[in-house]
């Protein structure tokens, strides 16, 4: 017997940010390869157009990052709750989640984590997104902005240790993003169906299936019992159909 419910996991501003950011980062990666290896990849007509596009995408990502940060910090106020791993997460959560991904998952075991609007990331996601969003992205944005104004910001560059150090930081972080992107997109296909996790990132609603008698049914209960801040955060399948 199955009962399907929808949880409003990802608010609209976050979704807009996410796709803008994703599009921006992919553009940055491709133009970045063009700029570093012009003799290998040259697809934007001229070198200059690759630079202009890279700079533009960089500014778009910087602005959208700032808005994302402000939104999570001040409007939603959930930055710390969502992104900072708790003591429990660090002690056992991450290991449990890794155990699931690399072992249980293959045996068909249940995912120990279930997203609620207040706690939508599993401990591994938290750790990864924390590093990506609060360490690497700011670093790559700052190094990128300095690289756009080398002559006026020369003093800062000298303090950092020269333009080559700066470029190396920028390049290596960009490589980390590319690596993250592969992992990220792949992990996003690990839902009930390969596209299950893409749906909430698109329209906000995640489908939660309660198969009664399922050993991990209890864990889902939380989204039932605890009324989320948003009245409409939980809908039944029927109400969605009616809408």
């Amino acid at each position: 017997m199955k009962h399907t419910e929808y949880v409003y996991l990802t608010p609209m501003p976050v979704r807009i940010w996410h796709w803008l950011n994703a599009f921006g980062i992919v553009t940055l990666t491709i133009t970045g390869i063009n700029i570093r290896f012009p003799d290998v990849l040259n697809i934007f007509g001229t070198y200059k157009s690759a630079i202009v596009l890279h700079n533009t995408a960089g500014i778009v990502v910087s602005i959208s990052y700032t808005l994302w940060l402000l939104y999570y910090m001040f409007v939603a106020g959930t930055l710390a709750k969502l992104y900072i791993p708790t003591m429990n997460d660090i002690k056992t959560g991450i290991i449990r989640q890794a155990f699931f991904y690399f072992f249980q998952y293959f045996k068909g075991g249940p995912n120990p984590h279930h997203g609620t609007p207040d706690n939508k990331f599993n401990p591994m996601q938290k750790a990864a997104y924390l590093v990506i969003m609060l360490v690497l992205l700011p670093l790559v944005i700052i190094s990128g902005i300095i690289l756009m104004y080398v002559a006026p910001l020369r003093e800062i560059i000298m303090v950092i240790g020269g333009i080559k150090t700066l470029v190396s930081i920028h390049f290596l972080i960009a490589c980390c993003f590319t690596a993250f992107l592969f992992v990220h997109i792949y992990l996003a296909t690990l839902g009930h169906t390969p596209l299950a996790y893409f749906k909430p990132m698109w329209d906000g609603w995640e489908k939660v299936e309660h198969a009664h008698g399922d050993p991990h049914g209890d864990a889902h209960g939380s989204s039932h019992d605890k009324a989320p801040d948003n009245d409409h955060a939980v809908k039944s399948a029927a109400s969605i159909g009616a809408a």
Binding site: I35, R36, P38, D39, G162, I163, K164
Partner: peptide
């Protein structure tokens, strides 16, 4: 070499 000299590409 030249920490302050870099030519992209």
């Amino acid at each position: 070499g030249t920490p302050d000299f870099y030519m992209m590409g």
